[in-house]
Nucleic acid binder design. Sequence first.
DNA 1: CGATATTTAGACTGATCGGTCTTGAAAGGA
DNA 2: TCCTTTCAAGACCGATCAGTCTAAATATCG
Lengths: 178, 178
Amino acid sequence: MGVFWSRGYHATALPDLLRATKLSRGSLYAAFGDKHSLFLRALDRYIADALTRIDVEFDPGREPVDGLRAYLAGYVDRTSGANGRRGCLLVATAMELAGQDAEVGRRVASFFEAMEARVADALSRAKAAGKLADGVEPSSVARILVCFVEGLRVVGKTAPTRNTSRATADALLGRFLK
Amino acid sequence: MGVFWSRGYHATALPDLLRATKLSRGSLYAAFGDKHSLFLRALDRYIADALTRIDVEFDPGREPVDGLRAYLAGYVDRTSGANGRRGCLLVATAMELAGQDAEVGRRVASFFEAMEARVADALSRAKAAGKLADGVEPSSVARILVCFVEGLRVVGKTAPTRNTSRATADALLGRFLK
DNA sequence: CGATATTTAGACTGATCGGTCTTGAAAGGA
DNA sequence: TCCTTTCAAGACCGATCAGTCTAAATATCG
């Protein structure tokens, strides 16, 4: 998974995958079929990891506002400095393949939907608890936040400092909280 | 330029470039050197086009808030429906190459800086004119907006409807205006 | 028209791609 | 110990990659 991660699909060659999996050529093909299938497996795992992480951050037993803070803090962490340079398998894949490869496109779209739904849910709970600023619409703000964090992944490629990114994220979230 | 646009650098082969430029193989190499140089030329042109467009949107003779609205509306237009599917050369390049190719990395970073500076300038003028909500910091909000529009390009790959994207952008900008 | 310069189409090169297949060494069981 | 099974190493395949070069066609000009 980590091999596709920073280099992308096309730029990852079989020898890279063999080195990463420590498998022989034959075993790799026996186990996964072909490069495309292996890539989809990696992408699915990446998505599953991301969603379970989000579910932890937005744990229902927790203050939803704290969940939102943790969610943004996690993205700040993953998109600043060297972490940002590493990039994001999902965003790289979205840009590289989502338009041409239907199987990939579906996965990318459903990931964004799933993430947006979780953020919207947390926002709804925060709103019910009276923590949101006046006029904040959870579904709309959820879309804003999803766009924002994916944008962080893009500009994160230029390795901004953690402090800058955190301040930016705080400023954004602050606009929606009471 | 349009060939690299949706497919990216690695996935664009020489025959694609020949078809797109209507040049013979020899002429193309005589004119541009190699694939990488041609790509940098395309990227530079894409960046220059984007910046001049932004300069038009943020024309000093115009209301800065109108400039911000036009800026966001342009991104909404380019990231919804089929336009969104086409993608963005700059974001695709950032994810595919910025981490590995220093020449590309520099261009991507300087583009984000340039765009952020222009947005920050428009926000400053809007603030001076008393159009911004209380406590809005132009430099910080500029970073927010840049992240947001680049995030739009990413989720735009899933071809959201124009109405949804516009509502999202309006909701965001509305939080910063008086 | 004829001589010269320019550009074209595409053959060609070596490297590398994804994917298959063979070979030989290691491991396990009786 | 010997037979079987398993798996790793890498040879091999056709296709295609970026890039070079040649030969024919076309344009230019006197």
